[in-house]
Design a protein around this nucleic acid. Structure first.
Length: 510
RNA sequence: GGCCCACUAGCUCAAUUGGCAGAGCAGUUGACUCUUAAUCAAUUGGUUCCAGGUUCGAGUCCUGGGUGGGUCACCA
């Protein structure tokens, strides 16, 4: 039983009656088979190759069958022009009463609508204005559109000015992404680019013998990042489960198992606030590299991202929101301590917690309950330094207490070998020399646990199985994690993460 | 979660101080054999996001709610 009755507008009701008319004539508005012989761009290049000109009536006319969505129609009495579009491009159709019959042309004008998918047979020619056109001998509907796509067409204003009426209501576009994609070619381009980016990342890592693996999305214990999880439940096993917040702890188990270079591209889920740079589910790339440390990972990161920029954008210089970002190595490298001195004149590691609190007050930053020195430094960094990091920059050497999975520097137990990459004022990636000492790791987990009250949302469960894996011996290694959506933002010049996610999370309406 | 802004026809947008809800495109009907923003003529289409309130009268003012956008906060 249908709970919500569908309602139709007058336009939709009218189109539904067209369905009946089509069927009465014996035309199936939703046939099971089509007979396409060429893509539109293939058909167009055929004409170019054959050097045919306007109205080539010779016997070697190129017969093709094209399919696509009807995008525009201009009827002119005994002939009509139209455009159809497929994924490769757009081509004009010419329908003439003298060729297809007066009745058939009339049917085209009355029963075909913008948005319908059609199949058209004919030969390729050129019009007097030089446009490559399909001279149609027969055509049919292969899928009828009931609802009108959002009109996106140029219109004339009262005076001379021209107003463009595009489908650009942000909420409508996200809620009906299919309509957005159908009428906005530039939106389709973003997602083609996104696909290229992911392909390019894989190519870079595969070439260097990294093994792509898949680890559990449903996990009995979550970890590897600072985030609250989504929880769910397995009915038969009577087991509570969490959607992963990172891949880290599973990928590092694989190093224990003997793999030396592994990576995973997949979805992470974090139960936190949404923003222009945060979606509850997002695509992450993580890799782990045995016998490497964070400097090696830094080198590989700038190579990887300049490779991807070059592959996808054709240049290592990328325009982003008015800035020309230069991805070419080497990137600027500055320690967190020096960065805070440079941008805020704060000598953080030589300051006391009290002094850092004072700086926070000056900066009008609210204090939270779980104050540690590292957290204060991170807060000051986010406020004073991060927004200034437009060009690709590595910030390295982080406070230990905010980096429980990173190895401490050999000469300073308060600082860990960790770096983050920033571009366009945004945190893009996070990496470290991985902690592989199980005794040290257990102490870090315990130390971390002390900072939280028992029922704190931020409290993380102790992953004993991960410690057990490490007990068997984990090779020294460098690890890396990157928000792929943010990389897509940078390489497609988008300021909102929702523009690079096909179906971004939105609140349900009503 | 706080603050600011937006929500009007299928789409993009108007509506003077609170005074008959409009336009272009799309749709419908008609004319037109090389158009492409086709053109021309006629025409349909409204829970102004929702619920209250003030008023002779509310798209407009007030209160509450919804959704979205921006921003701040939160985010070992």
């Amino acid at each position: 039983m249908v709970i919500n009755m569908r309602s139709f507008t007058d336009i939709e009701k009218n189109r539904l009656t067209k369905l009946d008319r089509l069927r009465e004539r014996g035309e199936d508005p939703f046939p099971n088979e089509v007979n396409r012989t060429h893509n539109i761009d293939q058909a167009i290049s055929l004409l170019v190759e054959s050097q045919s000109g306007f109205e080539n009536e010779s016997d070697d006319n190129i017969q093709v069958v094209l399919c696509g969505r009807l995008k525009s129609v201009r009827t002119m009495g005994k002939l009509a022009f139209a455009h159809i579009e497929d994924v490769t491009g757009r081509i004009q159709l010419l329908l003439r009463a003298s060729e297809i019959g007066k009745e058939r042309l009339k049917q085209f004008a009355t029963d075909f609508d913008l948005g319908d998918f059609v199949e058209a047979t004919g030969y390729i020619m050129e019009t007097r204005t030089g446009e490559v056109t399909l001279n149609v001998s027969s055509f049919r509907i292969i899928s009828k559109s009931i609802s009108p796509l959002p009109a996106s067409k140029e219109v004339q204003d009262d005076g001379e000015s021209i107003v463009y009426s595009a489908f650009d209501n942000v909420e409508s576009r996200y809620r009906e992404r299919y309509a957005d994609l159908a009428v906005n070619p530039h939106v389709r381009e973003i997602f083609k680019t996104r696909s290229k980016i992911v392909t390019s990342l894989r190519e870079f890592l595969d070439r260097r013998d990294f093994l792509e693996v898949e680890t559990p999305v449903l996990q009995p214990i979550y970890g590897g990042a600072a985030a609250r999880p989504f929880s769910t439940h397995h009915n038969q096993l009577h087991q509570d489960l969490f959607l992963r917040i990172s891949f880290e702890l599973y990928l590092k188990r694989l190093l224990v198992g003997g793999f030396e270079k592994v990576y995973e591209i997949g979805r992470d889920f974090r139960n936190e606030g949404v923003s222009v740079t945060h979606n509850p589910e997002f695509t992450q790339l993580e890799f782990y590299w045995a016998y490497a440390n964070y400097i090696d990972v830094m080198d590989l990161t700038e190579q990887m991202l300049s490779f991807v920029a070059e592959q996808v954008c054709g240049s290592v210089i990328v325009n982003y929101q008015g800035n020309k970002l230069d991805f070419s190595p080497p990137w600027k490298r500055i320690s967190m301590s020096d960065a805070l001195i440079e941008y805020a004149d704060i000598d953080c590691f030589n300051s006391t917690v009290g002094q850092l609190l004072d700086y926070c007050e000056q900066a009008d930053i609210r204090k939270n309950n779980d104050i540690t020195k590292g957290k204060l430094i991170e807060t000051l960094f986010s406020k004073h330094v991060e927004p200034n990091l437009i060009q690709p920059t590595f910030i390295y050497d982080y406070p230990k207490d905010i980096s429980p999975l990173a190895k401490a520097k050999h000469d300073n137990s308060e600082i860990v070998e960790r770096f983050e990459g920033f571009i366009g004022g945004m945190e893009l990636c996070n990496a470290f020399t991985e902690l592989n000492n199980p005794v040290d790791q257990e102490n870090r987990f315990i130390e971390m646990g002390k900072n939280y009250s028992k029922d704190s949302d931020d409290a993380h469960p102790l992953d004993l199985d991960y410690l057990r894996a490490m007990d068997y011996g984990m090779p020294p290694n460098g690890g890396f994690g990157m928000g792929v959506d943010r990389l897509v933002m940078l390489l497609t010049n988008q300021s909102s993460i929702r523009e690079v996610i096909l179906f971004p999370h939105l609140r349900s309406k009503e």
